Simulated assay, not measured.
Amino acid sequence: MESTNGRNLALLVLCLCACYALAFEGGKEIPATKFGQSVAPTMTFLYCYSCGYRKAFEDYVNILGEKYPQIQIHGANYDPPGMNYYLSKLIFALKIIIIVSVVTSVSPFTCLGLNTPGWWNHLQGNKIYACMMIFFLGNMIEGQLISSGAFEITLNDVPVWSKIQTGRFPAPEVLFQIIDNQLQFTDNVQENPDFVK
């Protein structure tokens, strides 16, 4: 009786972990319009975090903050289009479910009325090794699914650079020229006179 209650509790925990992992993010807020407002320009960087582009983003933030102190700069992870994002969430949920099953010694095969395979018994016998391998293998697959190579730049919600389309990062001088061209009629942004080129 107690083992049945323990299994039911473990299955409940597994289901809650899976639901949490697959939970979708809330709807995006609609930004307020900027007409008639004296608002500083906003530059947004969407980059591939799993590709290691966060350092490049921080370098651009430092360079742009030095030359254009009035521009507000935001950065976020670029979610890959299509099913890759959802597949990575599914892999994450399966990884958590398998690790919790191994740690709690709950066999999903017996819960489904199937014979337990030998490899599952091997996982149960080597829990630490099995959990580490499941974790790292799951992370590797997730990384491959969400790796987009993106470094997308928008200025006031207008796309100004796409690494996906060009295949490269913009040189700082090119980005300065793009900003100057986009903001040539704006009085809010002025170049820092102390900026060293």
Rank of each mutant, 00 (worst) to 15 (best):
F24R: 00
S88T: 02
L112K: 11
Y68I: 07
L137H: 09
A32Y: 15
A93C: 01
L64N: 05
L114S: 07
L112F: 10
Q165I: 14
I178M: 12
K127C: 10
I99F: 04
A23E: 03
S107F: 03
Q70C: 11
Q190G: 08
G27C: 11
P41F: 11
K55M: 12
V174A: 15
L137W: 08
L22S: 00
M1L: 14
R7Q: 13
I146A: 01
G27H: 12
L123M: 15
I97N: 01
V100E: 12
A171Q: 13
T44Q: 08
K197N: 10
R7V: 08
C51W: 05
Y86A: 01
G75I: 01
K28R: 13
M43W: 03
K67Q: 09
E2V: 14
L112Y: 07
Y78I: 05
Y20P: 01
Q177G: 08
W120D: 02
S148N: 09
Q182D: 05
H122Q: 15
N139A: 10
S148K: 02
Q165F: 12
V174D: 14
G167F: 04
V61P: 02
I99Y: 02
F176T: 15
E2A: 12
K163C: 07
E66Y: 11
E29Y: 09
L46T: 10
N181K: 15
Q72N: 12
L11H: 04
L145R: 00
Q182M: 12
A40Y: 09
A93M: 00
I73S: 03
A40D: 13
L183D: 08
R54N: 11
L9W: 06
I96G: 00
T33D: 13
P80T: 09
W161E: 04
L94C: 14
Y86R: 00
L183G: 07
R7N: 13
Y86H: 04
K34R: 14
Y78R: 02
I146H: 00
F57E: 10
G75K: 01
R168N: 14
S3R: 14
G118N: 14
L114N: 06
R54D: 08
Q184D: 06
Y78G: 02
L16C: 11
L137E: 10
L14D: 00
G27S: 13
L16E: 03
L14V: 01
L16P: 02
Y60Q: 07
S148Y: 02
S107G: 03
G75A: 07
L112D: 03
Q144V: 13
P108H: 06
P172D: 04
S50H: 08
I30D: 09
K95S: 02
T4D: 05
N115R: 13
V174H: 15
K55R: 12
F45V: 12
G52K: 05
N192G: 04
P81L: 03
G6D: 09
P108K: 03
N8E: 13
Y20W: 08
I179F: 06
F109Y: 15
D180P: 03
H74K: 09
A76N: 12
G143R: 02
Y49D: 15
K67R: 15
G65E: 03
L11S: 07
Y86G: 00
I146E: 00
I91P: 00
P193M: 06
P159E: 08
Y86C: 00
V102K: 03
I153V: 15
K67C: 05
K67G: 03
L12S: 07
I30W: 10
Y49S: 15
K67D: 06
T33W: 06
F92Q: 01
S105E: 14
P117Y: 07
E25R: 00
T154Q: 09
Q190F: 05
